[in-house]
């Protein structure tokens, strides 16, 4: 889904990011609600080019960071600080697939009523059982079993991510498909539970070695 390319308020060049004009180096006035995809110059879609995201985050930081405005007038200093707050929020939200899915769903479902607490059938019980199993594993020092569980959780997370891709594509063509939106909400909720479990497995980084 493409959005209308905004123009710079000072020199009217097409903006890459809502925050700043790379042509004339001007800060842009900020609307009350800012679209995080526009901040990062990305089309509104679940699949993103993470290299592009990384690159623009760095380019914008190098222009806008308050460290470069330490000796600037107070108003400019504040502007740079606010810009960085927004930039960090956009970057953190969009680079994480669960947060990105949540934000995108929020954008797409804005005026529609979704049940925000749905889960796949039997999923809650399954999560409860896995949490209990994890409790036991954490007390048992069974590293092999922990690695297996960690891998299982990663796989399930990847599966959900694949579903996100196809579901968001469907929504792109038929934005009013409530059933698919609700399905997205269900998967998103499930993904949050998986995350919670993954976070409890310690030293994940080392286990993968």
């Amino acid at each position: 889904m493409a959005f209308e390319q905004p123009a710079c308020q000072t020199c009217e060049s097409t903006l890459i990011s809502r925050l700043f004009c790379f042509s004339c180096n001007a800060f842009q006035p900020l609307p009350r609600e800012i679209d995080l995809f526009e901040v990062m110059g990305l089309p509104i879609a679940f699949e993103i080019d993470s290299e592009e995201l990384e690159e623009l985050y760095q380019r914008l930081s190098l222009e806008l960071h308050p460290d470069f405005f330490e000796t600037a007038p107070e108003a400019e200093k504040r502007l740079s600080e606010t810009a960085l707050v927004i930039l960090n929020r956009a970057y953190n939200t969009l680079r994480d697939s669960t947060l990105r899915a949540g934000y995108l769903l929020f954008l797409l479902a804005k005026d529609k009523k979704l049940d925000e607490r749905t889960l796949p059938v039997g999923f809650l019980q399954q999560m409860f059982n896995m949490q209990e199993a994890l409790d036991e594993l954490l007390n048992s020092d069974d590293t092999a079993a922990l690695i297996r569980m960690s891998k299982d959780l990663q796989d399930r997370h990847k599966k959900i991510e694949t579903s996100f891709v196809s579901l968001f594509k469907i929504i792109e063509d038929s934005p009013e498909d409530l059933e698919k939106l609700q399905q997205l909400q269900t998967y998103l909720n499930a993904d949050r539970y998986l995350r919670r479990l993954v976070d409890r497995i310690p030293e994940n980084g080392l286990l993968q070695n």
Binding site: E116, R117, T118, L119, L124, Q125, M127, F128, Q131, L188, N189, R192, Y193, R195, R196, L197
Partner: peptide, 13 residues
């Protein structure tokens, strides 16, 4: 009773 808060992945029995 088994309930959950999907906002943050809480589950309570």
């Amino acid at each position: 009773g088994l309930v959950g808060a999907p906002e943050c992945g809480d589950v309570m029995k």
